[in-house]
Structure formats: C-alpha cells, structure tokens
C-alpha cells in the first residue's frame, strides 16, 4: 500500500483533549490526541467502545467544543469555530443511517437542504449514480429505505455539500455484510476518483486494513499506536494493539 507523503495536509488536530464530568467522576475522553489527514488519504481510528473514537470525530467536526488543543484545516486555525463553520470543510456520516435523515422529509429534500443554498438536482442525480442507487429512491422517506440505502444517501448528501473530508463514525457496523461491502466499494471508488480524505472510525480491524492507509489505535482517550496500516497490523508494538489484532484474528476464524 503506497502513501504519498508529499500531499497537502487537509486537517490537523494537535493535542486535542476533552473531559466529561459525570456526577463527581471525571472522564478523559480524549487526552492530547494528535491527528492529521492528507488529501486522498484514509486514516483509520480503531479501539474498543469508550476509547474516545467517536469523541475525536465530534471534537474535530465542532459538534463538541474542545477543551484544549488546536484544529487546523490546511493552514487555517479552526479551533472553536463550531460545526456550522466546520461543515464547509468536512462532513460526517453516522452509524445510524436512518436517523441521520429527518423522518418527515424525502431524501431529495434532505439532500438539497444540506447544500447551503445550492439546489442542483442534476448533481444529486449524478451522485446517486455514483453510489449505485436508483434515483427513484430520492422521493422516498427514510423509513422506506434500507439501512444500506440510507447510508449511501448519507454519502450522497455529504458529497453534495462539497466537503473534501469525510468523518465516518462506525458507518458499516449497523449494516449487513453485503451492504457493508457496497459501502466499502463506494468509499474506495471515491478515494480513487475524487481524492476524498476520510477519517474512518471503526472497531473492525479487518475493514480498516482493507480500506485505510494509516491507522491510529486508541485506548482510554489516548493514541497508543499509530502509523502505516501494514506496519501496525503486521508488527504491532503496543501490547493493547496486539491484543486487539489477536482478538480480531480469532473472531475471523
């Protein structure tokens, strides 16, 4: 797997920290996490539940304010500018595909609405083609679509918004195997055709290995290991990473 290290860095998070207070207990969901993403690069983030993967995405997207650390898009400092502003640079795809669309609206309504004033039906149709859906589905509401179809619609919406960074939060974990494969195929295609950069949060190491160039392994809000996917998976340095990979191997047997 080749990675071109000279490509521009689209997104950079430096020493990102986030602490939640729950009753009298303080939980460090993120402590001093460094992350960067190059154009056309897929970065996997793996770790068990509660390791801070999703918090990392929420903090980067501005949906959660960061406690400490800096976020840059290119050279521009974006720390604390909020999700409305960040949405111009990046889009997010969620685990629960159905709930990422308002149940009352048709797909086409939801997609056009996310275009920041742009209403280009031809572009929507082209994107629908790109993800391999039938444009008949555009007039349907989320309840009338399968999870996989909804997830592909979510990708269409993110692309229609014009962002070149996608934050994917466990986007395949709620789907059946064939829908999973379709989503992975689409992401690969987008990577080749559009040079999309993706931050891919997942607990499925096999999937991350197939899709990503680099990987970060997180545990208790910290990055315990990071690097080229082949290096990390084949020669894990950290004991926790080894344990994760071991259990993934055992599961696939």
């Amino acid at each position: 797997m080749k990675t071109d290290d000279s490509r521009e860095i689209l997104l950079r998070g430096e020493r990102l920290s986030k602490r939640f207070t729950d009753k009298d207990r303080q939980i460090d969901a993120l402590s001093e996490v460094d992350v960067f993403l190059r154009r056309g690069e897929f970065l996997g983030v793996v770790g068990e539940s509660g390791s801070g993967k999703s918090t990392l995405l929420k903090v980067i997207s501005g949906l959660l304010p960061v406690d400490a650390g800096e976020i840059y898009c290119g050279e521009e400092r974006m720390t604390g500018c909020g999700a409305r502003e960040m949405g111009k640079r990046l889009q997010m795809i969620f685990q629960d595909a159905k709930s990422s669309f308002d149940p009352r609206f048709s797909m086409v309504h939801s997609i056009l609405e996310s275009g920041r004033g742009k209403r280009d039906l031809a572009e929507v149709r082209a994107l629908i083609d790109l993800v391999g859906l039938d444009s008949v589905l555009l007039s349907r509401k989320p309840a009338a679509l399968s999870g996989g179809q909804c997830q592909r619609m979510a990708i269409v919406r993110a692309l229609y918004n014009g962002a070149d960074i996608l934050l994917c939060d466990e986007i395949t974990s709620a789907l059946d195997v064939s829908s999973q494969a379709q989503i992975v195929g689409i992401l690969k295609k987008l990577k080749e055709q559009r040079g999309l950069a993706v931050l891919f949060v997942s607990h499925d190491i096999a999937l991350v290995r197939m899709l990503c160039d680099r990987v970060l392994v997180m545990q208790n809000g910290r990055v315990v290991e990071g690097g080229r996917i082949a290096n990390v998976v084949d020669d894990p340095q950290d004991p926790y990473t080894r344990q994760l990979i071991e259990s993934a191997r055992r599961q696939s047997l």
């Binding site: 997207s61 949906l63 999700a83 409305r84 960040m86 949405g87 111009k88 990046l90 889009q91 997010m92 969620f94 685990q95 629960d96 709930s99 990422s100 669309f101 308002d102 939801s110 609405e113 996310s114 275009g115 920041r116 979510a154 919406r157 918004n161």
Partner: peptide
C-alpha cells in the same frame, strides 16, 4: 441527539 440534527448543523443551518 438524533444524527439528522448534527447533519443539519454541519450543513450550516442556524
């Protein structure tokens, strides 16, 4: 808490 609200915020809606 629904994802469509997060999506709407990311789409720049007030």
């Amino acid at each position: 808490q629904e994802a469509y609200i997060s999506s709407a915020i990311l789409a720049g809606k007030s």
